[in-house]
Design a protein around this nucleic acid. Sequence first.
RNA 1: GCGCGGUUAGCUCAGUUGGUAGAGCGCGUCAUUGACGUUGACGAUGUCGGGGGUUCAAGUCCCUCACCGCGCACCA
Length: 726
Amino acid sequence: MYPDENVPEILTKPYNPTETEQRIYDKWLASGFFSPEKMIEEGIIKEDAETFTIVLPPPNVTGVLHMGHALMISWQDIMARFARMRGKRALWIPGTDHAAIATQSKVEAQIKKEEGKSRHDLGRDAMLARIDAFAQSSHDTIVSQVKAMGASCDWSREAFTMDDNRNLAVRTIFSQMYKDGLIYRGHRIVNWDPKGQTTIADDEIVYEERKAKMYTFKYSKDFPISISTTRPETKIGDVAVAVNPEDTRYSEFVGREYDAVFCGVPIHIKIIADKEVDKDFGTGALGVTPAHSMTDWEIADRHDLPRPQVINEYAKMMVGGENLLGKKTTEAREVIVEWLRAENLLEKEEEIAQNISTAERTGGIIEPLPKLQWFIAVNKEIPGRGKTLKDIMREPVESGAIKILPDHFDKTYFHWIDNLRDWCISRQIWYGHRIPVWYKGDEVYCGIDAPIGDGWIQDEDTLDTWFSSGLWTFSTLGWPNNTKELEIYHPTTVIQPGTEILFFWVARMILMTGYALDTIPFKTVLLNGMVRDSQGRKFSKSLGNGGDPIETAQKYGADAIRMYFAIASTPGTDTKLYEDKIKGYKHFANKLWNITRFVMARTDTAHWTATPAYTEADQTLRNEFDAIAQDVTKDIDAYRFYLAGEKLYHYIWSTFADTILEGSKQILDGTDADAKQSRQVLLATILRDSIKLLHPFMPFVTEELWSLIPHQDTDHELLMVSKWPN
RNA sequence: GCGCGGUUAGCUCAGUUGGUAGAGCGCGUCAUUGACGUUGACGAUGUCGGGGGUUCAAGUCCCUCACCGCGCACCA
């Protein structure tokens, strides 16, 4: 029986994360060491220490943190704490994202539900005030949750994608791009979301497979060619029938023009030949509707065709007689099909599977419409640079200046760039960065600030949220001001987004940084997959399948969730969440707690501070540990947290506790004084170094234990800034 | 249609450069008033999706097929 005289009272009870974590986080905050400048001031690191910079992918201010955020914070904090302990000038910049359409539609839905009002009932200013209030409260929740996960972010540098500094950055880069001719206003066919009443970018479209009816018919009895469509209501807007140039069935008609009255609407159809037409699809003839189909718009470009619009922003018919005018597209479709039947023009009706385009945020069915919008030209040469924005996006990944992990994602990335069209950046919503363009009569002014003089009216539209997110690595460091911080901390070291925002965000950051600073935003892109429930489903409120990391942290400790995500999740791959496993890591924290209790009970301070002199057997054990430590260091360096975490878990539990510690009992109770002394030092030093190695993964329990064990002079009283072993 | 990923123990997943198949959970047997029951010891379970190839040696490299997931394109 060993008296616990060397053991602090707190260690005699099981480890209690909920009692500990808040206290520890406050201690870290009070130290100021989340700011690298404070570490320099205290002499812990040198001013010229290598930098490690990471920006937090800013969570949307649309509510609360979810498991995906918990994963993201777990990995990033491992990197930040690891870098800090290795003596780097480590900076982790936190922030939140205004998320434009996501936030606005959330608040709109809430107001609609609770007060039955639309945003137009409230008006722009009142609506924006409501959104701001919501965003502020979401922000506060999110920040407290990020802290609860133990994130060692430098809160003094916290940013918001729509605060004053970031707004200045947006206006600055917009006007530069405008002057360079890379941003232009154009009347083009865009993805219109009738539900959200805004345009959206190509990559904001989500395709859903549905069954649809395809109708085959002729415009009129004497029209020579049959066409097929799933959307008969758009055919009022047809101006041509296109066939493949090689299609001999129709070659005699090419060049001819016909007039018809289609469901009461006069139309004029020209027969044209275009290579885009697949002669094996349907009848091999395509009714060309330039205003309501992307490909048809391009065909119209090539053949100089008119582009009459027949469907409006509310997905209702804007031409036709009483039977059509003002009707929803789905109703109009019925009307026209009935008319075709009555006129005996309908030749075939068949069910086909088709991909329908929906808006990512609102779920609205996309209606392609011609509209006057703002675009970024990705294929245009940048004045004085001899390359395009597409080149800027492609080059650093091609050359290896930016490394994507897992590396097979670079193929996906290049594929996306190759298919990229001009980026539509204007949105008809209110919440977001207002486009810095003003109009007066025919005059157009673009600048960082409003033009001088009366009568200027600012563009009503706001910018795609990813426009400001694209500036995140450098706008958070003070750009467009030429700050010292920008010089020191940029390009950042690594960024860690989910695979689903590789295009939305990663590509846009590379574009914006390459354009504005002629450099890269980061050197490594570490992608994480999605966190799903144990059945592989997405977490969602409607499913009620949980997914609240804070609730889970209260139950098992933030350390347990962090260790879980470190080990259970590999780059680029989805992770299913199992509570039992998280529970296992809570047990592990307690195991470490009890290991410390044992070691402290059988050692005294001298063993922790002595210069080690081991017996041969103990030296071997120490060497084994050193090898593990080196491995772990290499693994973290190479972003293999799952390997590092698992090695530590195993070493500490199976090797250190079950083998070394169990084997020590005999030695400690034995009569060989040298062996005993050696073993006591061994236990103390391996434990101390294990606590260090584990700190990036499980910062709370390790910091708490650190405060209880004796230290060497070379170590700091805070584990967070103590020296990494090896 | 093009591309990417996955398929390893009952379940969930590792397996970094090719060198005798691993972990956790679960399961079975046993132990224990001695740091910890949030414990310990021991144990069972695998034609590493199918087929072919390269190699002294393949879960790992190459080809091919199947199924699952995803991205892009098409979507008249």
